[in-house]
Design a protein around this nucleic acid. Sequence first.
DNA 1: TTGAAAGCGATACCAT
DNA 2: ATGGTATCGCTTTCAA
Lengths: 307, 307
Amino acid sequence: MSNALSGKGRISAEMAERVRRRADEVGFRPSQAARALKTGRSGILGFVMPDLSNPLFPKLAQSVEIAATKAGYGVLIADSRGDVDEQTAAIERLRQRGVDGIVIVPHRGTRPKIQSLPAAVIHTPSDPLNTVSSDHAEGGRQAAQALIDLGHRDILILGGDRASEVQRDRIDGMVGVLGPVARHRTAWTTDGFPDIADLVAAGVTGVLTTSDLIALRVLGDAYQAGIKVPDDLSIIGFDDMPLATAVRPTLSTVAQDVGQIAEKAVTHVHSLINNEQSNAGGMVVPMTLTLRASTAAARHHQTGEPS
Amino acid sequence: MSNALSGKGRISAEMAERVRRRADEVGFRPSQAARALKTGRSGILGFVMPDLSNPLFPKLAQSVEIAATKAGYGVLIADSRGDVDEQTAAIERLRQRGVDGIVIVPHRGTRPKIQSLPAAVIHTPSDPLNTVSSDHAEGGRQAAQALIDLGHRDILILGGDRASEVQRDRIDGMVGVLGPVARHRTAWTTDGFPDIADLVAAGVTGVLTTSDLIALRVLGDAYQAGIKVPDDLSIIGFDDMPLATAVRPTLSTVAQDVGQIAEKAVTHVHSLINNEQSNAGGMVVPMTLTLRASTAAARHHQTGEPS
DNA sequence: TTGAAAGCGATACCAT
DNA sequence: ATGGTATCGCTTTCAA
């Protein structure tokens, strides 16, 4: 039988070679469909995410695809377009298509029902369902500590969406560091953008955002108000989106190691599929702060007490 | 005979209903694998693109997924990561996985071998293999005409990659409009970024780029050189990336109708799969110019002759 | 070690 | 209109 050419089974080297050559001659293409039917494995993983057009996800999707390909899987994408019902529907569609497992980035504030499908959840350590994710709180701490080290003592924290657990964790990390040593306030862009000029006039010298897109907006507002970055105001973003190095000044940012996250997620699902021990219960991947031109030492360095 | 519930075949309404109810009871899930084996159709489309992390593609991938889902297909992604060999390999992997057809955005300067697989090529009208795409030259014309209408007569065209046919077509469109009526020069960022301050000093009042990312960079350079946008310099980008509305001033840009492109591409592949007449031989989708805050009337409006 | 044959679960055709 | 059954192409088990 020609399947012995697939490596396993007991077969003579000679026979194997003969079969292999003949297969090449005829241009033999094993049918995935038939294999899937017989083995009950499609060799396909689903990747569910809230919104591919959000600049955060493409790199992750790309990494998942790379990791999956390396592990011998194909990747079926399912974009839930920010809609929770669509997320449920997407998972169901993937199941119907017979995926062997899924990698999912849950819609903010959501606990998707996976129902006995091997799955890896990429979210945030504070989510009990989390399989693997960046240490968002630690990332927030790094960003905050960087501003502290540069002498900033009056800082604006700017989040994009209160409902996002990832963003809340980042901000919790920031607040944890700033709390004892610096004045700080938190605002959410869903409540409207705060007036940067006013804040700077009131003494703010640093802005921590939960996204490069928000940081870019702050940069622009500062520019229009005649505030110099980084001289008068330091800004740090998150996720190292492509725009971070395209904008002037280049943006300091805290990046996720999406490659590692994707790798671990795929490995985990793969283990689940094969009923192996999943050594992975809430793996945490460190984030990396990259200081670029949008941050500098605070102009009026306060060496004294926190206010 | 449960398949008669799938709609076709001759069956009594009563029987159909009975089967349907029983199917629900048992929680019947048709096996895609078995169906695929029998019908020779996987119900899956492949989507091959050069680089998902390029901000241009996510929206397109998203649109393709939406269009495919609507047409009853799943989408298997294959990112060729800017590598031509990887592109070939990716297509081959998709074929092995038994996709019914593919939608492909070819790597710049490449004519991928599809080999008897139903396919839609999304590229540019100047590519003879093109199935559907934006009218990039017309987009370039729109951008150029907008600056002309605003009184600009000395314009810098800034491309990102000479090897990209899409970018060349956009620039050809720009040059076609500017040629007779304005002074203009073309530069490529692969040769290094031109010094915006020098150019403005030399009389340039407008910059046309082939990408929002490049436009963002120009905006930043101008800012650092103390050049006011749009007062001293107008800038227009391409593709309406998320950053376009996040930056200040917001970026004027020429957008693709990715939804329509994806829709047509999927429809075309679907027709090919069913051996229907493909009415689509080089469909062209118009682009849309959106004027935002990065463009304004030229300060020194030259009403005279082109130079 | 090799050959033969039984199924995986749908679909479609053919008798009834 | 309905029930029965051969078949898609591969994997796996069993016999030789």
